[in-house]
């Protein structure tokens, strides 16, 4: 049980670390295209990199132009945010209220994990307790010796019949 707490904590930390640094595509253009949504009139609701409508082509050339003029990735994304508002970003930012979007799922899993641990502690009876219960339930039966022998024979028969 002791190990379990560390394992859980470890998994949580690793998961959070892995989740926290953004990277999918190697090129800068790709990164930007991944970070913003396509803003076409049809409201296609796609990430720019996945969109192939006319608007997306225009946006792409725009980004390329900005890249050539020496703007960094962050600056370009910022110009998009200034122009369209936060809704243009394909994922919530990792600050303020939006942090909740990122943390809650992992917090839920952590909470659930602790809950399960608690449950298991309650459900798993220590070995001593389990064996202590046994004689109490058995002693209530009459003519134990005979009937138990009979029952174990019946059990055997039933078990054999189960797989015929």
């Amino acid at each position: 049980m002791k190990h379990f707490r560390f394992i859980l904590a470890g998994i949580f930390i690793v998961a959070l670390c892995l989740a926290s640094n953004p990277a999918w595509s190697a090129t800068v253009l790709g990164d930007i295209e991944n970070a913003v949504m396509c803003k076409c009139d049809d409201k296609c609701g796609k990430v720019l990199i996945n969109c192939n409508c006319d608007t997306s082509e225009k946006t792409r050339t725009e980004i390329l132009k900005q890249l050539e003029s020496g703007l960094t990735k962050e600056q370009i994304i910022q110009t998009f945010v200034d122009k369209y508002g936060e809704t243009v970003l394909s994922a919530p930012t990792k600050e303020g209220f939006n942090l909740m979007a990122w943390v809650t799922p992992f917090a839920m899993i952590l909470g659930g994990g602790l809950g399960i641990r608690k449950l298991l502690q309650v459900w798993i009876k220590p070995k001593g307790e389990a064996t202590a219960e046994k004689p109490a339930s058995e002693s209530s039966e009459i003519s134990k010796e005979d009937s138990l022998g009979g029952y174990s024979n019946r059990l055997k028969n039933e078990l054999d019949r189960l797989e015929s």
Binding site: A19, M37, A91, N98
Partner: peptide, 11 residues
């Protein structure tokens, strides 16, 4: 705001 594929992929 938009919650798009990058969010789901990372989480």
């Amino acid at each position: 705001i938009t919650v798009g594929p990058p969010f789901y992929n990372q989480v």
